[in-house]
Amino acid sequence: MKLLKILLYKELRQVFSGSMIYIFLAIFSFISGGLFFGNLISLNEVTNKNIIDNVLSPTFSAVNFLLIFFTPVLTMRNFVDEKKSETLNLLLLSNLSSTHIFLGKYISSLIQGLFIISTIFLFPIILAFSGFSDWGMVFSYILGLYMMFSIYACVGTFCSLVSKNAITSIVICFAILFSFMILFTTAAMIDNLMISQIIQYFSFGGHIYYFSRGAIASFDLIYMFSFILFFSYTSIQILEVKR
């Protein structure tokens, strides 16, 4: 645990002392803020239901899509930079285990994601001045978004580990994330209900729905944790092979 803390502290020190994360934050806030503003000005009547259906839901849904583009770029350097500067061997030869190394990188990405995603809390806070009060839905939707980000970040960290350069990492990660995203649309086109439902279960799209309605479903959590576990385990095994 002590070693993980040391690595995590180093990662965060590097990330937050650089400019990349703040540029990310600025771009993310600008786009998500623009989406929120666009949805808000088109609102005719201010009621809780109206705000949820016509402002927050479309904004958060677009943020989820935005994260598919942002996360590969955010996580691309996790291992690519280490390989480029030969510091991966420095970590592999140390007392850090492969699990420490992976978790150090992954948790650092999760904290960066938390830092960026937390800015969308501003939207319901702004709406609260007009009487909006459905905080349960807001918290569950943002939790859902954060859980989705956790999956994206895990895939991104894995891609960074298997790629030789940052561009390859982004392309592979985006390809994986986008494939799982469009599975939802593919499922809708299949006539066989059982196959359609299986495909739908594997897609990302179906697993944010209940969060967006203010509910946390166990099968969504199982799906998300399974996804994270699969990519974490695979990454740790790859690091073990590299040792």
Binding site: K10, R13, Q14, S85, E86, T87, L93
Partner: peptide, 12 residues
Amino acid sequence: YLSENLPLYHDL
């Protein structure tokens, strides 16, 4: 071990 490409974290 010190490789030819020095294993350094340049931003630290």
